[in-house]
């Protein structure tokens, strides 16, 4: 899997690259409009992370270029602009997703994997991990052939954790992903703990080959047993 990061802020670009390399992706970076244009013309990428404000030109015109060659569907815009106009313009130009800075690493990983999954397994929406099979269209989880009864939030948590398996997931990131934007500001997200507890119990009772571990002070991690 080859991923291109188009981001002028080198430190941010580096930290994203490090994180994606931990997922064993092949990562390239471009720091300005010119080099980004060269790269997208010369090579094919499975996913492109695109900043809108770039030295030398706008990310939106790069997107236009990608659209004209039919390659804009695997683009995730990462922008500090939380402006609706940009979001709409980007999505109209065929971008797959729009992520506002600052974001959590786990959220970016989940979004990148969603893009890759849509791209590589057209029509197939099953994810397999250990003895679990997730169908994210039907929103069902099967463990060793037995259906695991999960509520909506539990499924979302499990899905997010699986997309970030073996990675540290910040609890704020989890809360925002599962409970939505309106939940920011509300306490220490302690309330997500009870949902996690139920999910853990169900996984354990069904002898699932995965476990959600608490990481002291930060959040959670999904590990394969």
């Amino acid at each position: 899997m080859k991923i291109l990061i188009i981001e002028d802020e080198k430190e941010l670009s580096d930290v994203i690259r490090q994180s994606l390399e931990m997922e064993a992706f092949l990562v390239e970076t471009a720091g300005d409009y010119r080099s980004a244009l060269d790269k997208i013309i010369s090579f094919d990428y499975d996913c492109i992370l695109l900043d809108i404000m770039l030295p030398g030109g706008s990310g939106l015109s790069l997107l236009q270029e990608l659209k004209s060659t039919g390659k804009s569907d695997n683009v995730i815009i990462i922008s500090a602009k939380d402006s609706l106009d940009d979001k709409l313009a980007g999505l109209n130009l065929g971008a797959d997703d729009y992520l506002t800075k600052p974001f959590h690493i786990a959220e970016l990983t989940a979004r990148v994997k969603s893009v890759l999954r849509r791209k590589s397994f057209q029509g197939k929406h099953l994810i397999e991990i250990a003895n679990l099979t997730l169908d994210h269209e039907e929103r069902t989880v099967v463990v060793d052939g037995n259906l695991l009864a999960l509520n909506r939030k539990e499924f979302d948590i499990l899905m997010y954790m699986i997309l970030n398996k073996n990675r540290l997931v910040n609890k704020t990131s989890l809360a925002e992903h599962v409970w939505g934007d309106y939940m920011d500001d509300s306490d220490d997200y302690e309330f997500i703990y009870s949902q996690i507890k139920n999910l853990r119990k169900k996984l354990k009772e069904n002898r699932a080959g995965i476990e959600i571990q608490a990481v002291y002070g930060i959040g959670y991690k999904l590990a394969q047993l």
Binding site: E9, E11, L12, S19, A80, K81, P102, F103, H104, I105
Partner: peptide
């Protein structure tokens, strides 16, 4: 201003997340 502020926050936060990992 939001752009200028949010990028350094993003860098700091993501670096810390990697550090913790």
């Amino acid at each position: 201003a939001s752009h200028e502020l949010q990028t350094p926050i993003a860098i700091s936060m993501n670096k810390l997340e990697l550090l913790a990992e």
